[in-house]
Amino acid sequence: MKLLIVIYSLQHGGAERVVANLSALWSARGYEVTVATLASKATDFYVLDKSIRRLSLEVAGESIGVGNALVANLRRILALRRVLRRVGPDIVIGVETTASLLSIFASRGLRCKVIATEHIHPPMLPLGRVWTTVRRYAYPSADHVVALTEKTRAWLEQHCRCKNVKVIPNAVSLPIPVFDPVLEPESIVVPGRRMLLAAGRFTTQKGFDCLISAFSQIATDQPQWDLVILGDGAARSALERQIADAGLERRVFMPGQVGNVAQWYARADLYVMSSRFEGFPMTLLEAMASGCAVVSYDCDTGPRDLIKHGENGLLVEPVGEATSLARALSELMTNDDERVRLASNARDVADAFSPVRTLRMWYDLFAEAGVQDVACRADQWVSK
C-alpha cells in the first residue's frame, strides 16, 4: 500500500515528530511511504528513515492580500496534484488544517482516499474567516477526519458537519530517536542541581512567559532548582528580557533545540507544561513515558487526556495564572517521595498510548476507507 503524508514542514514541533514516528512505523511494516512538505527540505529538523521518500513542493510562504493568497493556494494545489499523480498513493493524509484542505482539493477526481487531521483543538487556534469557512465546507468531503481527542471530535461534528470523524491519539515510541543537534544536559545544568524542564516552540501558545513568572515566585525558596526551556521561536527575545528583568540569568536557561531530548527527560527532576492550549502534547506524553513527574495547566484538550490529577501528575487551574502554577511546582519540588510516586505512575502512559494500540486504530480506519488488504496487516501487526 502507498501512503502519502502531506505537512507544512518538518521543523521542530509535535505534529512533525508524529509524522517522523508514524512514517517510520508504517514503512517498517512494508508500506511505501512518501512525506511531502510545502516548505523546503532546508528547513527540516527531523530526519526521516532512509526507507521513506521525501518530497518538497517549495510553495511555502506568507501571502499579502486576498488575491495573492488565492493565487498562492492555487499554485499549492496544482503542485500537490502533480505529486499525487506521480506518487499514485492509495491514501493521502493531510497533517493539520492547511495541508488537509490542500490535500482534499488536490485529490479531486483521483482514486486516492483522503484523510484530514486536526492536531490542535480548532477553537483555540482561529484560522480566520476564509480558512474557517473553507474547512467547514471541505471537511465533509474527506473520506475521514482524524481528531486527537473526543472534545475535538465533537467540535468537528458540530461545526464542520462531519459524520466521519475518528479519534486516534498520538503514540509514544520508546526509545525516543536521536537527531542533531546533540547537547548534553550537564553542559547546561551542573551535576547536583535540580532541573525543572520544559520544551516547545517559543510562541504565545506554549505559555513560557507564565512559566518564567511562576518560577520567579519560587526561585528564592527553591535555591537548588534551575529551569531549562528547550526549543526556539519568535518569542525568544521577549522571554530573554523577562528572564533578565527577574534577575534569573543564572537560574533559567534556553539552550535552543536539541535532538537528544530523551537524555534531557532522564536528567530532569520535574517536567512542566505551561501551554495555554494544546492538541495532544507529544512532549508531555514523552516526558511521562520516560518517567518524569509532571505538572501541567489543565487546558481544554490534551493534558487531561494524559494526566489523572494526583495519580500520575498534577493539573493546574486557571490556565495562564502564574501563582497557581508556582504553588503546584513548589509542592513537588519540596517533596521527593511524591515526585517519585507520580513519576512511577506516569510511565504507564507508554502502554496506554503504545504504537501497537494507535497503529491498530489507523489500520482499522484504512480498512474502513476501503483500501484492500489492510485488515490483514492490522492483525499481523498486533501479533508481532
Rank of each mutant, 00 (worst) to 15 (best):
residue 1 M to A: 13
residue 1 M to Y: 07
residue 5 I to H: 09
residue 11 Q to H: 12
residue 12 H to D: 05
residue 17 R to W: 07
residue 20 A to F: 00
residue 21 N to F: 10
residue 22 L to Y: 12
residue 26 W to F: 15
residue 31 Y to K: 13
residue 32 E to Q: 13
residue 35 V to G: 01
residue 35 V to S: 01
residue 46 Y to A: 04
residue 47 V to M: 13
residue 49 D to R: 10
residue 50 K to W: 02
residue 50 K to T: 13
residue 50 K to D: 15
residue 52 I to H: 01
residue 56 S to C: 11
residue 56 S to L: 02
residue 59 V to M: 11
residue 60 A to W: 03
residue 63 S to A: 15
residue 65 G to M: 03
residue 68 N to S: 14
residue 73 N to R: 12
residue 77 I to H: 06
residue 81 R to S: 01
residue 85 R to I: 14
residue 89 P to H: 04
residue 90 D to E: 10
residue 91 I to H: 02
residue 93 I to P: 07
residue 96 E to C: 11
residue 101 L to P: 00
residue 104 I to A: 07
residue 114 V to D: 02
residue 115 I to Y: 08
residue 117 T to C: 09
residue 118 E to V: 11
residue 121 H to L: 10
residue 123 P to E: 01
residue 125 L to A: 15
residue 125 L to D: 15
residue 125 L to Q: 15
residue 126 P to S: 09
residue 127 L to I: 11
residue 128 G to E: 03
residue 132 T to N: 14
residue 136 R to E: 04
residue 144 H to R: 15
residue 146 V to T: 07
residue 152 T to R: 05
residue 155 W to M: 06
residue 156 L to Q: 04
residue 157 E to D: 05
residue 157 E to K: 12
residue 167 V to D: 06
residue 169 P to L: 00
residue 169 P to Y: 00
residue 172 V to K: 04
residue 174 L to F: 04
residue 174 L to H: 10
residue 178 V to F: 07
residue 183 L to P: 10
residue 184 E to Q: 15
residue 186 E to C: 11
residue 186 E to W: 09
residue 191 P to A: 10
residue 191 P to I: 02
residue 192 G to T: 04
residue 192 G to V: 05
residue 192 G to Q: 01
residue 204 T to Y: 15
residue 205 Q to A: 01
residue 209 D to R: 12
residue 210 C to L: 11
residue 212 I to R: 06
residue 215 F to H: 04
residue 222 Q to K: 10
residue 222 Q to Y: 05
residue 223 P to R: 05
residue 226 D to I: 02
residue 231 G to V: 02
residue 232 D to S: 13
residue 232 D to Y: 06
residue 238 A to M: 12
residue 242 Q to I: 01
residue 242 Q to P: 00
residue 243 I to Q: 01
residue 244 A to R: 12
residue 245 D to E: 13
residue 248 L to S: 09
residue 260 N to K: 07
residue 271 Y to W: 09
residue 272 V to E: 03
residue 276 R to T: 05
residue 279 G to D: 00
residue 280 F to L: 07
residue 281 P to W: 00
residue 284 L to A: 08
residue 286 E to R: 04
residue 286 E to D: 06
residue 291 G to L: 00
residue 291 G to W: 00
residue 295 V to S: 03
residue 298 D to M: 10
residue 301 T to P: 06
residue 305 D to Q: 08
residue 309 H to S: 08
residue 309 H to Y: 02
residue 311 E to S: 13
residue 314 L to H: 08
residue 315 L to Q: 06
residue 315 L to R: 10
residue 320 G to W: 02
residue 326 A to S: 11
residue 328 A to D: 01
residue 329 L to N: 07
residue 341 R to A: 08
residue 341 R to Q: 09
residue 343 A to T: 10
residue 353 F to V: 09
residue 358 T to F: 00
residue 362 W to M: 08
residue 362 W to I: 11
residue 363 Y to L: 12
residue 363 Y to K: 13
residue 366 F to C: 10
residue 379 D to N: 14
residue 380 Q to G: 10
residue 380 Q to Y: 12
residue 381 W to M: 15
residue 383 S to Y: 07
residue 384 K to M: 13
